[in-house]
Design a protein around this nucleic acid. Sequence first.
DNA 1: AAACTGTTCAACCGCCAGTGG
DNA 2: CCCACTGGCGGTTGAACAGTT
Length: 379
Amino acid sequence: MGRSPCCDKIGVKKGPWTPEEDEKLLAYIQQYGHGSWRALPPKAGLQRCGKSCRLRWTNYLRPDIKRGKFSFQEEQTIIQLHALLGNRWSAIATHLPKRTDNEIKNYWNTHLKKRLAKMGIDPVTHRPKNDTLLSGDGQSKNAANLSHIAQWESARLEAEARLARQSKLSSGAGSVNSFQAQSPEFASTSSPIHKPVGPGRCLDVLKAWTSTGVWGQTSEAGAVNSGLSMRGVAGELESSTSTLSSAAGVGVRENSSAAFAGNSCDVDGGVTKEEREEEYWKYLPEQRNGIRSSFPFTSVLATESIRSSTSEHVPCGNFVEKFTDLLLSTDRHLSDDGGESDDNGSGSGGGSDYNEDNKNYWNSILNLVNSSPSGSPIF
DNA sequence: AAACTGTTCAACCGCCAGTGG
DNA sequence: CCCACTGGCGGTTGAACAGTT
């Protein structure tokens, strides 16, 4: 077959970018937009292939990129989303405004994956490593099935996002902030000069599940029942990742938009990151002990999913509700087993053993990970 | 101070899906 | 329907840097 390479290799520079090259690329895109990446390098006076330019722009030069250390909140979000989506970095990145998929991928590979592995948690399945011995065939199948469903769902959401972007594009004017935040290509094509991105907004898988009403649910916000329209997802969602990552652990319900609106998530609601991490340490021993016993996640949840999915081939509302509930529950988890937080126990019709058990699993992971800085005695 | 080892992260590569002629 | 092209994605690499011996 022999696909033509993205660029003729002769005369094309590779390797690290120089400041001069950066400047050229930046200046060109700011003035003209990137247009066709393939056609860009000669126009911009660069001896690079278009692919390299695109990568440099999306991973480094874009003005809305946040660099530096990942916050506590971001770590939590990555871990949770990775548990749900796997190595789908671009999908994960849409939930972390200002972070690139490449950066998230690197961070996962160099930090989070190792941390989980050292704690005896399989970073692929997010299950305790010896759990495979404990679980019977049924559980394994259920886990696989659940994973499949999660993939299906995330793919669906991505498709919706694409449709929404297209419709936004075609409809022309209007605020594009929410899409700029998550879609650099959109931002840069829609306007040569990058507009400042507003408060962090992004798609939220969990809220989408609960709010679109696609699965026959009542909208969390009350009135959203837009079917597959992205308005039900992006348009209505003000607070994005908040529900995923809000204050997991210390019972501090955060202002969700605050968690990602600014460049720093270190201080939320007057509680510093250090304070939160300190709180985590208090719970570590019992969480560590409980981690193996509290793993009914796949068995209960996946059984439910199988029952509901076999008939329609998609997860039904009941499954989604529980799955969503499970993940949403991470912001109040310690109140259940730690008892130290002043959890208001709001919403989510909790109280069932099912919910308790599932929370325990996720809480265990998050507690262990987040309460284990590199200097931790665990290591 | 030098050699060695481990870690980080920017950049590359190959593959795939979408799109338009 | 086919094919060529493009953009995007995830996995991998390797240079630079940091830490240790």
